[in-house]
Amino acid sequence: MIEVHNLVKRYGVVTAVNDLSFSVKPGQVTGFLGPNGSGKSTTCRLMVGLDRGPGSTTFDGKRYDQLQAPMKEVGLLLEAKAFHPGRRARDHLRMLCAANSIDQKRADECLEMVGLADVAKRRPKGFSLGMGQRLGLAAALLGDPHTLILDEPSNGLDPQGIQWLREFLRFLASQGRTVFVSSHLLSEMQLLADHVVVIGAGKLLADCTTAEFVARGSKAWIVLRSPSYGSVVDVLRSRGWSVEAQPDGSLHITGAELAAVGDAAHSAGVVIHELAQHRSSLEEAFIELTSDSQQYKTTLPGSPGTGLGGIGFPGLPGGNS
């Protein structure tokens, strides 16, 4: 169980983390989400005392620096490629083992676990980002900890690696461990996280289950497609539902249940080619929630202020095709 209390981090006049409190429960994967510059990595570093600032974080009641052998209790992956390029991968792990009285054999076991056994004796100078992440994961797992804090662990991993990581983290959570993962890959987090902590501009925006988060920001609608709508629009509206015709020829109905729309269409004698429930994804819910706290706002070519007024791209709003 991780308990985070009132973390604050200021860099001059900028407040990167602003009185942040939340808790991370064992037995589930907790996703840590936020736009770029929202303070996710800073929060992770504050939690384990790597960055200094007011507030406190406890791991089963103890601060990180009070743990006797911290790697046996909390596994950390805070940065890809945080290793000396000239030190062999195995030596990097053995060195960390020595710090926490972990059996040196564990280095080879963890390298095997993350798929780096073949390069154990290689110097990581030429490691790719993905290989660096795997080595960092191996380091996090050395002490077989009950808590994991992973900052963007899937960065640079190939699809197989991402799938392995997802299954592995879910397995660890199923064993009752506490897994706290920050990520930008929202579709991945939707598959992985049971619970989400969302921050924007250093402040807590949401702390709830993933399902609740999606539902909270969710725009649910029903898509109805038919070769001939006849009187169905009137029938649907007569039941108090909102109906919008879409450019692709379908209807979007909100405020209704799927079965009820099907029944109404049937009563109107309409042939149905498509009838489906749609909900916003975690990504859409996330974008909606964090739109005001985004630090690095972007524009599309052709939009006002970009100086690229004449340029457009096929398929984009305002495009020239």
């Binding site: 384990v48 005392g49 790597l50 990180y64 620096d65 911290p70 790697m71 950390l76 940065e79 960390l96």
Partner: peptide, 18 residues
Amino acid sequence: GHEYRYGTIRPTLSALPK
């Protein structure tokens, strides 16, 4: 110097927080 140059200070202090 190596710790700061190669960014290994964070793994080091994660292993040795005192």
